[in-house]
Design a protein around this nucleic acid. Structure first.
Lengths: 330, 330
DNA sequence: CTGAAAGCGCTTACAG
DNA sequence: CTGAAAGCGCTTACAG
């Protein structure tokens, strides 16, 4: 590999100083720095003849400015070869919005294997964090230094460090779902969540569910699964007039139970899942619409605002509720 | 935004020189440079307390080594919000293989709008180029400087510049298709291509088709569409025993024609398309399998080899042919 | 065993 | 109107 052409090469060939060459090449000639037409032409000609391409890393190191790269960090694999990933829609929204804002995206998801982790993020001007938030001292160091980081989904990182995040408008969507269930709930909702997904979003959804139910005088019975549903837990669900699952996969745990008893969801049992049906396979339950790309895009806008020094408070992404589309008798 | 912690801050706090701090932090202490245990601990403690995160850009600028970033460049949009993109499978293969090789991927597809184009690529150690190859002097400058560039698909960039590329094994696949058509071709194949896709791959496919047909004593009648098929061209196709379309979209141009005459492809007309059926909608024609992710992965391996100084000659990606799966009488 | 110095490729005050 | 110099954050010879 031959040595790369540098600014010095161009300056030498054009017979000017590096300062002059730099001014001409970066279009600064004219403002503040005046360069004669002859020298300007000489520099341009030399750059062209040599095939000069500036080293952006050096430019940004010197200028200390935004290099228009957004890192996208996740512990999960958003590009599985076989099927779709639940993180992919976020990525799509991020990529599109970044493109619109004229930022490039650096994908950093071989993270787990790497030693010098937080430093890879530092190559970008800021980062968007997707997926499960493991306890990670590198990330904490970044946050302490005010490195611009935006999390997709609300996060509590402890130590009362201020965290930037964007989130879905769970409150409105969950309230709407309770409103829809109320007429049939007969004063009682069974709410099934799981210790496997006890992160912040679930905490939020649970909170709003209880608040809205209380407002309507509906009693909420909480079931928190640690494992496959026990027979007692199955009994509770079957006895319910209205059932709410926290996640799609939790509803799926009950599919064999329903099948075994000839129970058809949407006909014999009625309820909702507090998630978008991104798999397109749960139309017998009330869910909300997939707004993942929109949330990804919002994260980008938030990050870009941070990078521009604006202290934007991002809005939430609204989640329109889709009522169960059953034709089975309701 | 508070000032970032630099190596100097750490050195000062630990009461050592920047050289010592650097050696400790990069694990070089022990080989060549000996640092006492006390100072080592002091440096580590200071780095930790301050939350030091090295500036990778500066490290690489100084060392001049591979920063383990691969740029992915395309003029096309590989992340359309609505439908699938024909470039996405390449991207998927590239991303997966890069991850395996411990490279990060920098997505550069807001290229069109940008002024300082080739310099953005320079931020990476090398680049993979996808999609249509516009005439671009920036890219040529990069090639002239031996910047590691690997094209997905064979490329002629002119000026007899040496180009690195990976390609599908069209020869074998096209030969196999001619072999499959031969028994029914009655000595004549009509081959329809288009001026809209006259890039290198089409040239290659055309070449191999003619070569194999000649070997078998089959005459090839070439039709090159500049527009919608004319009635003469439609007549030629309808009269053919065996028809070969260069691309899926070219076959699609004839769909209304077939419909209007009650002709059912796979029953009344027989042939192949020289492309993988990545849309999954052309099963009435003989095609080959989708190997786009594999080609993307091969491009990554090629680029990584280039970056390691090996002068790898990449193999081609084989394209297994899928015979028409019709049940309509053949 | 450790530090002062040079330098990666660039830009931006600051003198002339 | 132009160039010499300092410096962005690092590392790596090279003296002590």
């Amino acid at each position: 590999m031959t040595r790369r052409i540098t600014l010095s090469d161009v300056a030498e060939k054009a017979g000017v100083s590096r300062a002059t060459a730099s001014a001409v090449l970066s279009g600064k000639a004219g403002l503040g720095i005046r360069v004669s037409e002859d020298r300007k032409k000489a520099v341009l000609a030399a750059a062209n003849a040599l095939g000069y391409v500036p080293n952006t890393a050096a430019q940004h190191l010197k200028k200390g400015d935004d290099n228009h790269i957004i890192a996208l960090f996740t512990y999960e694999n958003i590009f599985p070869s076989d099927s779709g990933s639940e993180f992919y829609p976020f990525f799509q929204g991020i990529q599109q919005e970044a493109e619109r804002e004229n930022y490039d995206v650096l994908i950093l998801n071989n993270w787990a294997r790497d030693k010098s982790r937080s430093s890879r993020i530092r190559l970008a001007s800021g980062a968007i964090m997707i997926g499960v938030n493991r306890d990670d001292s590198d990330i904490r160091a970044l946050i302490r230094q005010d490195f611009p980081l935006v999390f997709v989904g609300r996060r509590d990182i402890g130590n009362s460090l201020p965290i930037h995040f964007v989130t879905f408008g769970y409150k409105e969507a969950v309230s709407r779902i309770v409103e829809l269930l109320a007429p049939r709930a007969n004063g009682r909702i069974v709410y099934i969540s799981s210790t496997f997904s006890s992160a912040e979003p679930s905490a939020d959804k649970s909170y709003y569910l209880h608040a809205e139910a209380e407002k309507r005088g509906i009693e909420v019975e909480d079931i928190v699964l640690c494992d496959m549903p026990s027979s007692r837990e199955v009994g509770e669900v079957l006895s319910a007039e209205a059932v709410v699952f926290d996640r799609l996969f939790i509803a799926d745990l009950f599919t064999p139970v329903f099948n075994a008893r000839g129970i058809v969801p949407g006909r014999d049992i009625f309820g909702a899942i507090l998630e978008d049906d991104w798999t397109g396979t749960h139309c017998e339950w009330t869910v909300w619409e997939n707004r993942r790309p929109e949330l990804g895009a919002l994260a980008v806008r938030y990050l870009v605002a941070l990078l521009s020094g604006e202290d934007m408070i991002p809005g939430e992404v609204r989640l329109p509720v889709i009522e169960k589309q059953s034709t089975h008798g309701f």
